[in-house]
């Protein structure tokens, strides 16, 4: 286990090194363009005097010390700006992931067990719709229905947040905060939910045909035990793997959801940074998101090994 985590850590460093190279190239180019815009080629030349590698080395040694440059707009270290915004985004992703989990498992199981039921057909049709409608359309539709027409849920901002520790203020500690997170979380979940319902359904149907399910029936086990212990556990194995990758892509979708709902998170911040040409902030965002990806994937691998006895992390490391 420890060897595995160490290996994973080295992999993470490699991934971050690649991201940093990309990030640095972006920054270098942006700085060059800004230099041209400002008309002060001389000022830029001072920087370009150093070779690409030397500058990259400076960038990396800065990054290792947590210095990803200073945001040109906020006049604050870029990492600090991001760390202030990160809790809002992580809470949004967490809420969306919980929604996906709560809804996809029962819906997936139901459609697998009763493929010809009217409700199953309805669920599957809606899921096709959900797959094909972009997030911002779903978001606007949700706002139109729940905020404008029925006026039961707020449509922008985080509402009352309760500080916990450091920059972390939470939506989950107040009624107003909870109400504010519902719509954006649903909008974000709407991308993943159809995918997971279909994935769980397909896996479950496959598992229900297996020998061990037939054997479970031949031993006189109750349907409840067969579906929710024997079948579900095997169904969730591949779902967890896919889930890890997909939660990563949720980070990307937060840019859309946060913008529509004016959610003060990293995604919203990133879009603004792009508009303002705030190069250090853009690069810092890329680095942080890269790190989040790596951490999530590691968590998923550990989780997978916990539910799949045939996977041995110690052996995986070797």
């Amino acid at each position: 286990m420890i060897i595995y985590l160490a290996k994973r850590f080295i992999q993470a460093l490699l991934v971050l090194a690649v991201i940093s190279l990309i990030g640095f190239t972006v920054q270098d180019n942006l700085a060059f363009q800004q230099g041209l815009n400002a008309g002060s080629a001389a000022a830029y030349n001072v920087e370009t005097d150093a070779g690409f590698l030397t500058k990259y080395f400076q960038f990396v040694s800065g990054a290792i010390q947590g210095d990803l440059g200073t945001s040109s707009f906020f006049k604050e270290p870029a990492l600090t700006v991001i760390l202030k915004k990160m809790p809002a985004t992580l809470e949004l992703i967490f809420a969306a992931a919980v929604l996906v989990g709560i809804f996809s498992v029962p819906l997936g199981i139901f459609t697998a067990l009763y493929p010809h039921h009217t409700i199953s057909r309805l669920i599957l049709s809606v899921s096709v719709l959900g797959l094909s409608v972009p997030v911002f359309v779903t978001s606007i539709l949700l706002i139109y229905l729940f905020s404008v027409t029925w006026n039961i849920l707020p449509s922008f901002g985080r509402g009352d947040v309760v500080p916990i520790v450091g920059y972390w203020e939470t939506n989950f500690a107040s009624w107003d905060g909870l109400k504010h997170i519902v719509l954006p979380a649903f909008a974000l979940a709407s991308v993943m939910l159809p995918l997971f319902v279909r994935l769980i359904r397909a896996e479950m149907r496959q598992v229900l045909k297996s020998e061990y399910v037939k054997y479970a029936r031949a031993r006189g086990l109750s349907p409840w035990r067969i579906y929710f212990v024997h079948a579900l556990k095997n169904t969730l194995l591949p779902v967890v793997t896919v889930g890890g990758v997909q939660i990563g892509t949720l980070v990307a979708y937060t840019i859309l959801a946060e913008t529509v709902f004016q959610w003060p998170g990293m995604g919203f911040m990133f879009l603004e940074a792009v508009n303002r040409g705030d190069a250090p902030l853009i690069v810092a965002y890329l680095m942080v998101v890269g790190a989040i990806f790596v951490v999530l994937n590691t968590i998923v691998d550990v989780l997978y090994s916990a539910i799949n006895p045939t996977v041995n992390l110690a052996r995986m490391a070797a």
Partner: peptide, 25 residues
Amino acid sequence: LRKIRGNRMAMIFQDPLVTLNPVLT
């Protein structure tokens, strides 16, 4: 049927490698 299956009438399947559920002890 459930009361009889596995209780008064038991079955042994052909391939022991795929008969037992891999994720349960």
